[in-house]
């Protein structure tokens, strides 16, 4: 069997075995967000001429797409490091790049699964369905790829992965709350609107708004694709470098 496929089955299987936690992460957490911010708070006021829930729902999908890779890569790399499972993987007759690809691909798929669950929840709880499935898919895949690479960088760059875990708290928070997830970019004024453009979550949330309802205020699609695309391309070599360096140090 192909190494990448085997690794994907291993990673997904490990998470399914912890089904209770997977359910909380995949379903209950976003459902609570959607109910409180979408159904309860969202019904109270409008935003930019549209229902607030409609502006916010794509942002919750963006958070779900982000949390998938974060969870999968952290739950794979951290035990791999501390229980030395990584060593076993490194002894498999495959290149380091293939191991990296398998981890990134796992993150992407998990991001897509998390996103798909929340897309379903948005439809069930709020009654919103995406206007363009292809745009939703394109943004979802690119965003999941970006967050997989980001997670690898954050976990692999510091001296030990637990330091990476700490660092991620500082990265995750601004990405979640300042990346135009709970509000549209058009609702921000300078300098916050410029600062928000530095966060890739802004492009993901705005792109998903366009995919859900093109009449909602959102950044131009070209800018969205450029923002996600450039961030991902910049992160790719850094992620590979950080991953190689961390594994080298792990073996020392």
């Amino acid at each position: 069997m192909n190494f990448v496929l085997a690794m994907l089955i291993r990673d997904f299987g490990a998470d399914i075995r912890a089904l209770r936690f997977a359910m909380i992460r995949l379903v209950i957490q976003p459902a609570v967000y959607l109910f409180v911010f979408g159904h309860v708070v969202g019904g109270m006021f409008s935003a930019g001429g549209s229902h607030y829930a409609e502006t916010m729902a794509p942002g919750i999908v963006a958070i779900a797409i982000m949390s998938g890779p974060v969870t999968l890569i952290a739950s794979s790399i951290l035990p791999g490091y501390y229980y030395r499972t990584l060593e076993g993987w490194l002894l498999a007759p495959v290149s380091l790049r293939l191991l990296l690809i398998s981890k990134v691909l796992g993150g992407v798929l998990y991001g897509m699964v998390s996103g798909a669950v929340v897309v379903g929840l948005v439809w069930l709880l709020l009654g919103f369905a995406p206007a363009s499935l292809s745009l939703l898919l394109a943004i979802g895949v690119t965003a999941a790829l970006f967050f997989s690479l980001l997670m690898l960088v954050v976990l692999c760059l510091p001296r030990t992965p637990d330091k990476g875990q700490e660092a991620f708290s500082f990265v995750l928070m601004p990405l979640t709350f300042f990346g135009c997830t709970f509000y549209s970019h058009s609702m921000l004024e300078a300098p916050y609107s410029q600062l928000a453009l530095m966060l890739p979550t802004t492009y993901v949330s705005e792109g998903l708004r366009a995919a859900y309802n093109p009449s909602l205020p959102h950044l131009p699609l070209e800018q969205v694709m450029l923002g996600i695309g450039v961030s991902t391309l910049l992160l790719l070599p850094i992620a590979e470098w950080a991953f190689r360096r961390r594994l080298r140090d792990f073996l020392w």
């Binding site: 291993r10 299987g13 229980y83 030395r84």
Partner: peptide
């Protein structure tokens, strides 16, 4: 020298 068994399995 050290065990590297996968704790998830």
């Amino acid at each position: 020298q050290d065990n590297n068994l996968d704790p998830a399995l």
